[in-house]
Write a protein that binds this DNA or RNA. Structure first.
Length: 960
RNA sequence: GCGGGGGUUGCCAAGCAUGGUUAAAGGCGUAGCCCUGAGGCGGCUAUCCCGCAGGGGUUCGUGGGUUCAAAUCCCACCUCCCGCACCA
């Protein structure tokens, strides 16, 4: 462990001193620009960040070794309200929060009290996390670091917004939000004490006419108005007559207050109790029928208007309430209702739905056995029927112009028609209570003068889809998710009134939404270095300058003089942008697909020409901790810093990458990190031995074999990293290659060949994107000069592929395995093992069979025989040939085409020679004498008559 | 509800887009042996079941189907996880 830490510190320093990760434009080299979504500076980096970032770094390092001029920059996200919120919690002395800071984040006491200042908090974590990032060994160009509240960055964001507005992508409008009247701000999910996931719902209010006024009854099912039979109000609740936008409405008092928050002009005229309304009549604005107002205790005045209309045929609660009412004539008298008024009310059927008769509500009540309106199953019945009728319902003849239409299809149309005819209005409300963390019940507020990004714009969406198609997405399974997100996105509010960030350029009291800071900021990385080096001030960064840099717009000379900039500087910045852009690879957690990554595409599509759109987009799973989701409250929060200190950077990086790829969620287990650490240490020791022992120039079969399989492994690693399959890549580079080295060592019996050291040289390079420090140290030992970080990536070399060598080793391996299997099955302890290699004519038959089945069609034994019998020598032993060909036809047919071609191209093996070569190895392994015969050797020892079982690639065995 | 991704041999996890070389990579764990003063590390062997000859049998969520051949293709079902907006 000490060793690993020492190595890591050494190379971290060496890289920084040599500045090898600082990337400047170089027209002679291909470039590669990779980015990681900057982390939010309200806490320490955790192992989840580490997983995603390590994937980016491994890719960056791999590309750099391939000769690309790689730029991997890093920055810090300070904007938004989380940091403000967090320091607020410190200020207010939130005990649990402070405890977490102290114990999980490891904030020292003297720093803790300074965190009441949000800017201080952001810079505190930025410093912490920068150090963590350094220790992780990420190959970052630090000259381009910035945070998102810097004045220069703000200028860039302002430019972005001006452009978007010019293109009509930023629009003004209103928007309903869950609102806390005490905090005077929207109450997001994380700010809630109660009501997680609850969003404002739009209710349709059917305006029943009542004495020159309106009684607006709230519903989600306005189509049922054709089945209305009466109105329900709560007799004991408080209602009010109010003036709403010039009309007289009667709604609950609570509803009146809510409407005020929803951009309506509301003036209370008088208060009244619900019972005042009972027994009165209203007019159905659609059917012009008269309905009486009845009392109902299920009506909740805290919900929408506190007025509902009754559709007993299709709404279980309405039917139940009506039935309850009919059964208690006394209560009706109390309200002055004649029992016959209730008696005469019959359900009106107006939706036909499969599986139900005239009155679905009645049927479903029977089926579920609902007792009365207080029975909790009443709710279940309502939901069930609603779903049924919505998806499968058709409106009946009494439904006017909507008759015969499906409920699902006609609903929107009907609502619009009703609104236009002043039959209906709408209001927002919360379907379930929401309580703010400050314990205030929330309401819905319609925010005015809200600014929106018009993600609903169909032309924009089309362009984004092009951008998506233009990019390679890894894994590909993420594509449908992107597509559905693009389709689903609507107007999105893009400015808030609180938190850190850039004010809207045309309305400074609004602050630009934090997610807009992360859409095209990669372009900023390409220019910040020079802006800083040239000491350009924020004031100089006018929109015209950005237009020039990003679009090449305008006369260089003129633009330069207005901003008091040297023309050459301006050109140089423009060129640097053009050199690095587009983004070649951006990778993030999959949870950012529905927001950040899609917005990233939206804004690029809107602001940049096609050739500057992103090239590769990667998404990965969410890190789990010992099988559970990481969360501070569960206490399984693991910081990146801590694991680096405990296990070392290389072990951490490898353990993370070996966890998962694609969109699978990797699992962090401390046990497996320890294993990886041991593995790396043991790899290090093995490498040292190989380096130390290399002395001779041998390059025999086994060396050829090693280099051949190494090529294949290099190819797998290369192809895998290329498509961001980092797990496969590392698994191959570490374990699979290791197994090849093991087999070599075992076969060879020593580590003295210089060729082995050459192979190690390749191995170190294959591993270095993943475990860069340890590989750097070994590179120094094996190569003596330069950085492995800049060494040439081992490309697959087809000239080193040696099928014959591989097949020879396969032969030795399978002899060893088969013999062991025989020993196991027979429980013999052999003293002598006889091997019999197949005779020549069998090889001829075998080759013939391989070649005639070349086209991938199965061969038949009879066809094979026909071909073979053309030759006299074969005819002479026709029965033997027939028996043998029968044995191999199936086996060959079952091979893939490639395998057949490969075996055919190798031709007959000199198995006897190969086995003699491997004799001492086999004797060592099997602890018995090995004797090799040819099948047709007349002097062979073959008491069990096994020799005749020999087949090509499969010598017969006799164990004694 | 809508949308997305999964269910593989003790565990983690490949394979599935291009069906056959797959009882199914690799890692971990477990057992035996070797190495070592001991431990760790390392090496070998085994690890679905059966087997005194390299073999046989039964497997890849469940149930059907296509095919000479299916973990891989088709259909239905069961089941787990994730996202759903003013939060980053």
């Amino acid at each position: 462990m000490v060793l690993l830490h020492r190595i890591e510190a050494k190379w971290r320093k060496a890289w920084e001193t040599a500045k090898i990760f600082e990337a400047d434009p170089d027209p002679k080299r291909k470039k590669c620009f990779v980015t990681f979504p900057y982390s939010y500076a309200n806490g320490p980096l955790h192992v989840g960040h580490a997983f995603t970032a390590t994937r980016v770094d491994a890719y960056a390092r791999y590309k750099r070794m391939q000769g690309y001029n790689v730029l991997f920059p890093w920055a810090w996200h300070w904007t938004g309200q989380s940091i403000a919120g967090a320091s607020e919690r410190v200020k207010s002395g939130d005990k649990a929060f402070i405890k977490a800071l102290r114990e999980i984040d490891g904030v020292p006491e003297q720093e803790l009290r300074k965190l009441v200042d949000p800017t201080y908090m952001a810079s505190y974590y930025t410093n912490e996390n920068r150090e963590t990032t350094r220790r992780a060994g990420f190959s970052i160009d630090w000259r381009r670091e910035f945070n998102t509240t810097s004045p220069i960055f703000s200028k860039f964001i302002e430019w972005q917004y001006k452009k978007l507005r010019e293109k009509g992508y930023v629009v003004k409008g209103t928007h309903p939000v869950v609102w806390c009247s005490k905090c005077k701000s929207p109450t997001g999910d994380h700010d809630r004490q109660e009501g997680e996931g609850v969003t404002p719902e739009e209710y349709v209010l059917i305006k029943f006419k009542y004495e020159g006024k309106y009684l607006p009854a709230a519903t989600f099912r306005p189509e049922t108005i054709y089945g209305a039979t009466n109105i329900w109000v709560h007799p004991n609740a408080d209602y009010a007559e109010v003036e709403v936008d010039g009309e007289r409405w009667i709604v609950s008092e609570k509803a009146a207050k809510k409407l005020e928050e929803q951009k309506r002009k509301v003036k209370t005229v008088r208060s009244l109790k619900g019972k005042v309304l009972i027994g009165k009549e209203v007019t159905n604005p659609v059917t012009e029928e008269k309905h009486m107002i009845f009392p109902a205790w299920f009506v909740d005045v805290a919900h929408a208007t506190g007025v509902v209309y009754s559709v007993p045929a299709h709404a279980p609660l309405d039917w139940l309430a009506l039935r309850d009412l009919k059964q208690s004539p006394t209560s009706m008298k109390k309200f002055g209702i004649k029992p016959q008024e209730v008696e005469k009310i019959q359900p009106v059927s107006m939706i036909s739905v499969e599986g139900f008769g005239e009155f679905p509500a009645l049927e479903i009540i029977d089926r579920l056995g609902v007792k009365d309106q207080c029975d909790p199953r009443a709710d279940e019945a309502t939901k069930l029927l609603y779903k049924k009728e919505f998806h499968g319902g058709v409106l009946k003849d009494i439904c006017g112009k909507y008759a015969g239409k499906r409920v699902q299809g006609v609903k929107e149309v009907l609502i619009n028609d009703f609104k236009e005819g002043n039959i209906a209005d709408t209001m927002y409300d919360l379907p379930e209570p929401v309580v703010c963390r400050c314990l205030t019940p929330c309401i819905v507020k319609v925010l005015e003068e809200q600014w929106f990004l018009k993600y609903s714009d169909l032309k924009w969406k089309e362009k984004v889809k092009e951008a998506l198609q233009n990019a390679n997405v890894y894994p590909e399974t993420a594509v449908p998710w992107f597509l559905s997100t693009i389709d689903w996105l609507k107007e999105r509010p893009c400015a808030r009134k609180s938190g850190l960030g850039t004010p809207l350029p045309w309305n400074k009291e609004w602050i630009i939404d934090t997610l807009s800071d992360s859409t095209i900021y990669m372009a900023f990385y390409t220019i910040i270095k020079q802006i800083r080096q040239r000491r350009i001030t924020p004031e100089q960064l006018t929109p015209a300058i950005f237009d020039y840099i990003f679009y090449g717009k305008g006369e260089t000379e003129a633009i330069a003089s207005i901003s008091k900039l040297d023309r050459r500087i301006l050109e140089s910045i423009r060129n640097e942008f053009l050199y690095w852009y587009p983004v070649d690879m951006r990778n993030s957690g999959k949870e950012l697909i529905p927001n950040h990554l899609t917005f990233f595409l939206f804004h690029h599509a809107a602001l940049f020409p096609r050739k500057l759109w992103p090239q590769i987009i990667g998404a990965n799973g969410m890190l789990m901790i010992e099988g559970k989701k990481m969360s501070k409250s569960k206490g399984n929060w693991i910081t990146f810093r801590n694991v680096i200190e405990e296990f070392g950077a290389d072990s951490t990086r490898c353990a993370l990458l070996l966890g998962a790829e694609g969109m699978d969620d990797p699992d962090w287990r401390s046990e497996s990190v320890r294993d990886i650490k041991d593995k790396l240490e043991s790899f290090y020791r093995l490498a040292e031995i190989i380096i130390g022992e290399a002395e001779n120039e041998e390059f025999g079969w086994i060396e050829k074999w090693l280099f051949s399989v190494l090529q294949k492994k290099a190819k797998i690693v290369t192809d895998s990293i290329e498509s961001l399959k980092t797990r496969t890549a590392l698994e191959t580079a570490l374990f699979e290659v290791w197994n090849d080295f093991r087999w070599y060592t075992r076969r060879k019996g020593d580590l003295k060949a210089k060729a082995l050291r050459e192979a190690l040289n390749v191995w170190i390079r294959l591993l270095s994107p993943f475990a860069p420090h340890i590989c750097e140290e070994l590179w120094e030992k094996v190569e003596g000069k330069g950085f492995v970080s800049l060494a040439e990536w081992p490309e697959y070399d087809v000239n080193l592929i040696n099928p014959l060598a591989e097949e020879s080793e396969n032969l030795v391996k399978s002899i060893l395995e088969d013999t062991l299997s025989i020993i196991r099955a027979t429980k013999l302890t052999p003293t002598k093992i006889y091997l019999y290699t197949a005779t020549e004519w069998k090889w001829e038959v075998y080759q013939k069979a391989l070649s005639t089945s070349g086209e991938g069609m199965p061969i038949s034994q009879s066809d094979l025989m026909k071909t073979l019998m053309k030759r006299e020598e074969m005819k002479k032993k026709a029965s033997k040939v027939a028996r043998f060909s029968g044995q191999i036809v199936n086996e060959i047919n079952r091979m893939g085409k490639n395998r057949r071609e490969e075996l055919h191209s190798i031709g007959p093996l000199d198995e006897a020679a190969l086995l003699l070569e491997a004799k001492s190895f086999l004797e060592r392994e099997l602890k018995a004498e090995i004797v090799v015969f040819k099948e047709d050797d007349d002097h062979k020892f073959d008491p069990e008559n096994r020799a005749r079982l020999a087949k090509p690639f499969r010598p017969a065995i006799y164990v004694k």
